[in-house]
């Protein structure tokens, strides 16, 4: 099971990295979303994998998984959403201002318009 999750995290990371290296804003945003998934899973996995032992204190529970990574990841998920929302809006505004959604400085190098 650990191998499955580790390879999954690796695959999501790889896709995320590939996407953030694209030239347009939308793939970069999705890439960041993928990286957020990977990072959250990675942090979560630091508490090791435990089945059927949620961190809900109860008498007679057989044991508990580590609650600390979970608390960290919970806020991380919400913050990632805040970040995604921010860069989506940034990309949107950039597109509305310049008419291009390439992630490059129009004042330097070739302009995105001319390249098309």
């Amino acid at each position: 099971m650990e191998l499955l999750l580790a390879s999954g995290i690796g695959a999501i990371t790889a896709v995320g990295l590939y996407l953030i290296l694209r030239r347009e804003s939308f793939p970069v945003i999705l890439g960041l979303t993928f990286l957020s998934y990977a990072v959250n899973l990675f942090l979560f996995a630091m508490g090791r994998l435990v089945v059927n032992q949620p961190p809900i204190a109860a008498p007679g529970a057989p044991g508990y998984t580590d609650p600390l990574p979970q608390a960290l990841v919970l806020t991380a998920i919400v913050i990632s959403f805040g970040m995604t929302a921010l860069i989506v809006v940034l990309a949107l505004r950039g597109f509305l201002e310049t008419g291009s959604d390439e992630v490059r400085d129009e004042t330097q190098g070739q302009s995105g318009e001319a390249e098309r």
Partner: peptide, 9 residues
């Protein structure tokens, strides 16, 4: 990806 996955493993 290999690095992160390997580290997690």
């Amino acid at each position: 990806g290999l690095g992160v996955g390997g580290l997690a493993y």
